[in-house]
Design a protein around this nucleic acid. Structure first.
Lengths: 113, 113
DNA sequence: TTGACGCATTCCGATATGGGAATATGATTG
DNA sequence: CAATCATATTCCCATATCGGAATGCGTCAA
């Protein structure tokens, strides 16, 4: 088997930096593709491809507006990620005083040898 | 270019479900490789490979303990992710009343035609 | 030393990627 | 209808993946 598809879930979709930038931009409101492409310095096909991925995982919605297609944010799919990561909050605070102490002890032990 | 390396940052590293499971398990404390492999139903080399990725992005630390290597959680690298995703919190609440409303309006409009 | 154990690495195959270039599609305008 | 604008899709390439199988390597016990 190979790596999971970027479209397999939001975790994979947001692993790509440019897609994160797109999402960030869309917080300001809906935007047409070319707009996004230009603002982020990517090609039009590039933007379209990233938007396709975001659409497939449901992080973005499209609305037809004449010639244009306006993409808008649908952040609901980010919530599970926030919750999963949040499950580690106590560990990036509390716990690591211990670990740092441990590391310092180690260094000191080595110096003493 | 191809897809970014899984080791390029924490976002990529946690895109893989099994690595997420490893991290979750490690909240309970340090564990040797074989332990993890067995508990998660993966092969030993499989576990080793995933742990390597997690180590390279700094989400995990190793400690030699005789024959064994004890892996421990270092969740600090998850904090930036939590913050980035958190930047969308207002959008998965507030904003989507509007969008849902919009969608309902659309449906109604179509029925009326 | 010889085994045995715990882990890491390497080699393989199948697969999916992101980017660039070219092209197709669809709606709008004249 | 023809031309044009806004997007999407397709093709191609270089690259990196995850998984399985086999193997390497360091540590400990007899």
């Amino acid at each position: 088997m190979a790596r999971a598809a970027t479209t397999s879930d939001a975790f994979n979709a947001i692993a790509e930096p440019q897609r994160r930038e797109i999402l960030a931009l869309l917080r300001a409101g809906e935007r047409p593709v070319t707009d996004l492409a230009q603002e982020l310095g990517m090609s039009q096909p590039g933007a379209s491809k990233h938007l396709r991925v975001l659409r497939e995982v449901g992080l973005v919605r499209v609305r037809e507006a004449g010639k244009q297609r306006l993409y808008g944010l649908d952040a609901r799919g980010l919530r599970p990620i926030h919750e999963w990561v949040g499950g580690f909050e106590q560990f990036w605070n509390e716990s690591f005083d211990r670990l740092d102490t441990y590391v310092q002890d180690l260094k000191q032990t080595q110096q003493e040898e």
